[in-house]
């Protein structure tokens, strides 16, 4: 089982794919999202997000401040840049 992740900025789509783990720089501190996470909308600080995709590859992405929405195993990150 994996989750679907989309990271989009106003200028382009930064990441799109199936993942098993996402670590995000939340405003209240860094946190991770695993499978079947409760629905949440959280603010993000600028920083690095870590992703482990469904092939177990580690990916890191730099994001600007933004917001994340998790709903029904769909993760959506809106980042400023």
């Amino acid at each position: 089982m994996s989750m679907h992740l989309e990271v989009i900025s106003p200028e382009k789509c930064l990441y799109k794919g199936d993942v098993v783990l996402v670590q995000l720089p939340g405003k209240m501190g860094s946190f991770e999202i695993l499978n079947n996470h409760a629905p949440i909308i959280a603010l993000l600080d600028s920083g690095t997000m870590k992703i482990i995709d469904s092939e177990r590859n580690k990916v890191t992405l730099k994001i600007g401040s933004g917001v994340v929405e998790v709903f029904d195993n769909n993760i959506l990150v809106l980042s400023d840049s």
Partner: peptide, 26 residues
């Protein structure tokens, strides 16, 4: 029900105060 189940972090007002300026800038 779905809408009211969503966790908001840090809280509703702060999220809204962040999202509205974002929308305006966009």
């Amino acid at each position: 029900e779905e809408v009211n189940d969503i966790i908001l972090e840090p809280n509703e007002i702060e999220v809204l105060n962040e999202l509205i300026p974002k929308t305006i800038r966009t």
